[in-house]
Design a protein around this nucleic acid. Sequence first.
DNA 1: GTCTATATACGGATAGAC
DNA 2: GTCTATCCGTATATAGAC
Lengths: 212, 212
Amino acid sequence: MNTEDKPELDGTTEQKIKAAAKKLFTQKGYSAVKTREIAAEAGINLALLNYYFRSKEKLFELVMADNFITFVDGASHIINNETTTFDKKVELLAAHYIDILIENPDVPRFVLNEIQNHPEKLAKAMSAKLDIFNSIIMKQLSEEIQKGNMMPVNRIHFMINIIGLAVFPFAAKPLLVKVGQINESTFVALLEERKLLIPIWIKNMYKPKEMN
Amino acid sequence: MNTEDKPELDGTTEQKIKAAAKKLFTQKGYSAVKTREIAAEAGINLALLNYYFRSKEKLFELVMADNFITFVDGASHIINNETTTFDKKVELLAAHYIDILIENPDVPRFVLNEIQNHPEKLAKAMSAKLDIFNSIIMKQLSEEIQKGNMMPVNRIHFMINIIGLAVFPFAAKPLLVKVGQINESTFVALLEERKLLIPIWIKNMYKPKEMN
DNA sequence: GTCTATATACGGATAGAC
DNA sequence: GTCTATCCGTATATAGAC
């Protein structure tokens, strides 16, 4: 399964349908998308959707797996790298999420929703990926604390904080645009700043008090 | 944690319908909810839904406004309070969001989705609320920086960080449960910790270097 | 105000021609 | 493989009895 099909304007009919479905399902969710809409977006006939994918639901499951992988796959490589330092992992993790979500801005909302609405499909989608709490970064976190480089820290809070600081702006984007008068280029600039700032913030959050 | 109990089984018919609609729309989104489902949940006849609210869409707009207000209304009081200190506002804001989302855990996902899917309805829903960037807390933030109590900080990042640290766990909850093996009571305990920790984290993130 | 019955449209899926 | 035409269940909404 290729995580990297972008909207395929050409390609096989099968690929066009899948790309159209991914775009629409990711933007609007399962129920809001009509099969006729997918067919129109793909520029093909409605009957071909069922010919290739049997049903709307099967097609959706493929999209869900794809999106879920987008969200967790790269991250698992980073947090389990044997050679990078702890600080480097924090830096890479923040940058990774921001970069991947710039390319796939609707994925967080999609994952959120469909995990709630179709929990039974999640098992299919996540094939034993992502055992965060037995990852290398967690071992390194314990070491940093033991060495006195960081204050003691709940590992769950720690992971929520890194990922949340990176992901939340994408979730909040529509609100930022409406309420905060942020435009597209301002938003991107903000994200680039955050790539640099998040590792610093994390460092500061858990920095041990140096003077008493 | 009222996710399980039937909303308003007493009250007027109109109230019962509205409460049922709010519960279902908030959990599943507009398209996934059927009017028959709302009627059943409210324990009334389908025809009464249209009798009181004309259409599914009108009913949805009411729910949307309600949920949007849940999300922004209390916050606007906190950030514009004339008497509380800056630190106190940070503390109240984090606690406010965590408390209100414990009671309304589905609201963040709902707001996220429906802002995306029905942006045209947002104008109706937000009645000129929430002008964050002209709020008291923003003035106080400038003062703190001027007094040297904080490092210079982009106000947008600052607001994203406070709200994100409070709200993101609710968005991530299904993932935490699946991937992180978090159960309900662990989750609540985590949230209570975060009420105390977020103000400290924010303080540390922006603490000026004290020694050179 | 509340119900039953129904009009009308829509959406997923398939049959069958080419 | 791709199309047109259509089946059939479901969804929103309303008519009209009580």
